[in-house]
Simulated scan of single mutants.
Amino acid sequence: MTVRTTLTAVATATLMALMPHAAQAAESYPDPRPITGQEIIHDPTVIRLKSGGYAAYSTGGVIGARLSSDGRHWQDSGNAFAEPPSWWYEYNDTGDPWAPDISYRDGTYWLYYAVSSWGTNHSAIGVATSETGLPGTWTDHGKVFSSERTDSWNAIDPALIKSQGRLWMTFGSYWTGIRMVELNPDTGKALPGAEVHHLATRPDAPYAVEGPYVVRHGRYYYLFASYDACCSGVNSTYKIKVGRSTSVTGPYVDSKGKPLLEGGGDLLLEGHGDYIGTGGQSVFKDRGEDWLAYHYYDAQDNGTPKLGLNKLNWEQGWPEVA
């Protein structure tokens, strides 16, 4: 190694140490954890069940279900519901639900999901509960929150976060981006007249940011979101970005201080190798560790969407995919 090369390496290392956070280069992204069994999934939400093992729910079917005893071998376990609740048909002709979110609170599992049609914000978010979190045990409770064509937001892609005794739901896709509304913790539905907070958008139409998920770590709340285009197989450009705030309702900024409401956001994970269009993410706890769940499109399998799982490490106050 030459002296010049050594000095360059030292300077680069020093600069990296001084930066508050640096996004990983694409070639350095780790591959997802190897899994077996049923890998096909889209917009996954994962939870470690109180009874042991794991459940994953997703877009597809009547909220498609996957179960695993160890988080590595997954089996197709049918659907959350045997039949779509009748009110879903108000939002699409097939009763097709999207992008669920599972959580556990006060002895009950809560499953949020969206119903809509491609290209419209005539959309609604619903909720169901279960004592076990297992497919076939869910009781639907109807609409939580909705949007209409006259609104500047889109009520899909729900995710919950509890903060200082209050319950919040992030949501949003295109239509000016990511929003948040407060819920009644007893009913799990939006408080009447609740303010709709604006968390993230992009400066350019069609404001391609969606799938929000907020996590508390230390003194900060971290907003994860999917940017660019999903659902096009190997042509998908989905990627995951993140910002943080000391308040659950924002403002969220990236490591350089740029607000997510002005197009900011640190790149957390993007397509690399055979793993194309990483997004539709959620975060779950497993034995005290944070795990990122997402889908990617498999370049070796004609762009089939599959489950990605990576542990999250926290470095200098920011998440990194491990």
Rank of each mutant, 00 (worst) to 15 (best):
G211I: 05
A194W: 03
L167A: 06
Y252I: 00
L267M: 09
Y221L: 05
Y238R: 04
G279N: 11
A208D: 14
V214N: 01
F224K: 04
K258Y: 07
Y222P: 02
K256Y: 03
E210Y: 05
V234N: 12
Y227H: 15
Y227Q: 11
D228S: 11
Y238C: 13
G243C: 10
N184K: 01
A208P: 01
A194C: 09
T237I: 06
V209M: 07
D266C: 14
D290Y: 15
G193Q: 02
D274E: 10
V196W: 03
V283E: 10
G193T: 09
A200S: 10
T278V: 15
G193F: 08
V234A: 04
G280W: 10
S282M: 11
E182N: 04
L167Y: 13
Y222W: 08
M169T: 06
G172V: 09
G218T: 07
T176D: 14
L260K: 02
D298Q: 10
D186M: 13
P259N: 06
Y213Q: 08
P203W: 12
G233P: 00
P259M: 05
W291M: 06
G211P: 02
R287W: 07
Y297L: 05
R219P: 14
G273C: 06
I276S: 03
S232K: 13
L167G: 02
Y220F: 15
Y297G: 00
E195C: 01
S247W: 13
F284A: 07
H272E: 08
S232Y: 11
S245N: 09
G211H: 00
G188R: 07
E210D: 03
F284S: 04
I276F: 00
L269T: 02
G279A: 13
G279M: 12
E210R: 00
D298P: 10
V209Q: 03
I178L: 08
F171M: 11
A225W: 10
G280C: 13
V196K: 15
R179M: 13
P212T: 13
I276R: 09
N184Q: 04
L268R: 08
R244Y: 07
W168H: 12
A194R: 08
R219A: 14
V209G: 02
V181I: 14
T278I: 15
D228Y: 11
V253R: 03
G172P: 03
L199F: 05
I178N: 07
T249I: 09
